[in-house]
Amino acid sequence: MRCRTCHTKAVINMRHHRLSLCKDHYLDWFVEQTGKTIKKYHMFGHSQRVLVAVSGGKDSLSLWDVLWRLGYNADGLYINLGIGADGEGGLPYSDLSAEHASRFASERGLKLLQVNIRQEYGETIPEIAARTRHGGDRPCSVCGLVKRHVMNRVAAQGGYAVLTTAHNLDDEAAVLFSNALTWSSELLRRQAPVLEEGEGLTRKAKPFCRVYERESAAYAILRGIPYIHDECPYAEGSTTLYYKEILNQLETKRPSSKLTYYTTFLKAKDEGLFTPEPPEEHKALHPCPSCGQLTSAAERCAFCRLVPGLKPGASPDQATSR
């Protein structure tokens, strides 16, 4: 297989784009495509400060690298969840992830903010989940809730215009599949490449929403970005992984299925498939009396009820080599 641009040996074939490319042209193409997505959905501009949520995995480190190459003013945020701390679960997953994020930042002279959940709140994510029994036998829902809260808090305190996450097309298609299976209209209405800001909530953008997971992994490998290959020990057997497997079986038989599924969903939304958000839902949200972030709960938000040791003014460590 040959590179469409220079006809040397290709290193990747993207059947959904009917495009095979060599290493150099793939790396350029990938950056260009992400730049187009940022512009297409009006995500952010070069004059704005961007915060990138980094996990030490292929997607988030690739995203940070691409934003850096595109010349955006992007700092990173790593949240140490305490997974695998004290030998729990075997692998020191969070500490290994932190090493990848730190090394990436220091090699490029980028600013990495770090929040350690145990140091800040006295417990790791698995410990909070075990104490509260929130989300059943997995800490995943606690993890999501805490990460969202911390990301919002750090972005607001740091004055960032936008928070970017490296959710890729496979993530978005799996969420869409899950929500469509149950026709969760409210969740379907909210799913978008950009989530606008609200009081206490920072604007969020997903520049990789049209990038296949396989493509971001290829980018990391070809750019020589070391990342954590091991899966989070709690992800095994997750519903998300199951839905991704199903969608990949479909994609293997019918290339472009995932991209078409997602982009036609966005188009249908634009064309009014879903009714606009009722105004009373906005009114039902109010700032949490403890942390100030918007909540629909009658009093304190779900995070503040979950983590009683909250220190609302806490600031992240600024491990910076800039």
């Binding site: 996990s55 995995g57 292929k58 997607d59 496979d170 993530d171 997971e213 396989r214 971001s216 992994a217 490998i221 290959h229 899966e231 989070c232 992800a235 095994e236 997750s238 998300t240 992984l241 991704k244 497997e245 990949n248």
Partner: peptide
């Protein structure tokens, strides 16, 4: 063979 799908 590098698995590229994560559960996140």
């Amino acid at each position: 063979l590098i698995a590229v799908i994560s559960g996140g």
